[in-house]
Design a protein around this nucleic acid. Structure first.
Lengths: 166, 166
DNA sequence: CAGTACTGCTTGACTAATCAACTAATGAGC
DNA sequence: GCTCATTAGTTGATTAGTCAAGCAGTACTG
């Protein structure tokens, strides 16, 4: 038996709309998932956001990426990217180097200890996400992904529109 | 055309599993939604978490709720509930009162300025969530809610099991 | 009716996130 | 080539979040 959100929040009043109920369900589920990921990576001494940066840099390959490009690709948007990478640098998990052709840019690269750490986390993370979303069948996962992608895509359009009109 | 997550993150490598892809989609979509909500409530001088507390207290009725009960019902779990409510108290949006029958407990209640603020936010929030999730048809919203509820339910079970076995 | 354990917060020390300036480097127009 | 605007990133001050310890009040046990 699946409790619905209204029961789970023990609220007396029902939701105003289905959209609002979905919004709350989405935020709550993401919070659970965030804690699941945090529980896997934090024992290794990094936060979930730092883990995200390391994954982005692994995916970026040999040259690394400029600082703000990393910020753009992150799951959770953060203005504090500089200090986030500062902390990874002091841990020797990333290295920074000023770009020679455009001296404004700073390229960040994952180090070999960083790669080792990531490799050690790959299986646990796959297991954790697999467990968390393991109740859903393959077709259900696909439709969840589809619904989320479309929601996000639409929200981004809205956001861009609102910024244009200001 | 909907971009998929892999393209959106500009990662070179594909996802390890569908579950992992869904996890990332979920976290990213929730982050967009969180910023949408924050953009609505922050101009009124409260954070999204503070807004969440006020909604819980409005739903709780006349008597209010003990502090930790509020923490339990929140969308995003926070250990810093005391100071969060401290800030709402200085803003005169909630009032605290020690329980007479169990003097350990502190009941928190929304004040009338708090209620006024919430009322002013009701429509904008409904609009914002409606817009964000407005791409989805009613049946799609229902299935999204169902998928999320089941995921969360399952993750909670896992979490409880793991805690028991420790 | 002690002694002990547990609950319900609160506090202090620390770490991290946020916002607004600010510098330094590049590019664009005349 | 000299202004002006833009981009890339950093820094400082403030605010918020986190974790561990603490303290008052309650319940349970012999």
């Amino acid at each position: 038996m699946t409790r619905n959100i209204a029961q789970e929040l023990k609220q007396n009043k029902p939701f105003g709309t289905k959209a609002e109920e979905a919004a709350v369900a989405l935020l709550r589920t993401a919070d659970v998932l965030r804690r699941v990921v945090a529980a896997v990576v934090e024992p290794k001494g990094i936060t979930a956001q730092q883990y995200n940066v390391l994954r982005i840099l692994r995916g970026a390959g040999e040259r690394g990426l400029p600082t703000l490009e990393i910020a753009d690709r992150m799951i959770e948007t953060t203005p504090g990217i500089t200090r986030l990478i500062d902390r990874l640098e002091t841990k020797k998990l990333v290295a920074r180097e000023r770009c020679l052709t455009d001296r404004r840019q700073v390229f960040c690269k994952i180090t070999s200890p960083g790669l080792t750490l990531l490799t050690a986390l790959d299986t646990p993370i796959l297991q954790a996400t697999g467990t968390a979303l393991g109740v859903l069948k393959k077709t259900e996962l696909a439709s969840l992904i589809d619904l989320l992608d479309r929601t996000r895509e639409h929200s981004n359009e809205q956001f861009i529109e609102r910024r244009r009109s200001q």
